[in-house]
């Protein structure tokens, strides 16, 4: 049995905040709710963060991996088939440094993208509550409900001024 959701839409963030306060009082787990908007809302977060984002750490680790990878590639590929060129050393620190720099950056880029997708568990094409009308403005609060607390959820969102409420 999949989770059932209440999707309540509010015109204003302040109304959504009021609804969230009521829902929390009625005992809904804050971790289970989702707040959707068409743009990032500046101000206090609607809900406490489950886990702070570690994207910066992702980027740093990617950079470190890229650095090791580029250094090894430039060094060991030269040593694997040593050819003297232009009287230069087989492994020249200057050029190894250049390659290492570029792969470090490449690592950071790819790791940031990967970290974003992993932290958000994207791509995901089904099973998550969503109200497409959110792209035309407003705030949609998604609350999980069961037969037991449906009434409490309904009261809370209506009291806060929800314009539309969908039960899915």
């Amino acid at each position: 049995m999949s989770q059932t959701w209440c999707l309540a839409k509010f015109n204003q963030p302040v109304e959504a905040r009021a609804a969230i306060r009521r829902l929390l009082q009625s005992g809904v787990d804050p971790q289970s709710m989702d707040v959707m908007t068409s743009q990032p809302i500046h101000g206090e977060p609607f809900l406490p963060e489950k886990k702070p984002t570690k994207l910066f750490a992702w980027a740093l680790s990617g950079a470190a991996l890229g650095m090791i990878g580029g250094f090894s590639l430039a060094t060991f590929s030269a040593l694997a088939y040593p050819l003297v060129k232009g009287g230069m050393p087989i492994v020249a620190p200057w050029t190894v440094g250049l390659i290492t720099y570029e792969t470090t950056m490449l690592g950071a880029v790819l790791a940031t993208l990967a970290g974003l997708l992993v932290e958000l568990r994207l791509p995901s094409f089904s099973g998550r509550p969503y109200d497409p009308s959110v792209v035309d403005g407003g705030v949609v609060v998604a609350v999980p409900y069961s037969d037991r607390n449906r009434k409490a959820v309904e009261e809370a969102v209506h009291a806060a001024g929800a314009t539309t409420v969908n039960w899915v």
């Binding site: 989702d34 707040v35 959707m36 908007t37 068409s38 743009q39 990032p40 809302i41 977060p45 609607f46 809900l47 963060e49 489950k50 984002t53 994207l55 974003l116 932290e119 958000l120 994207l122 791509p123 995901s124 094409f125 089904s126 998550r128 509550p129 969503y130 959110v134 792209v135």
Partner: peptide
């Protein structure tokens, strides 16, 4: 599968 949740925007 973008929904525009707060978590998504922050990240």
């Amino acid at each position: 599968g973008w929904r525009g949740t707060e978590r998504e925007w922050v990240r």
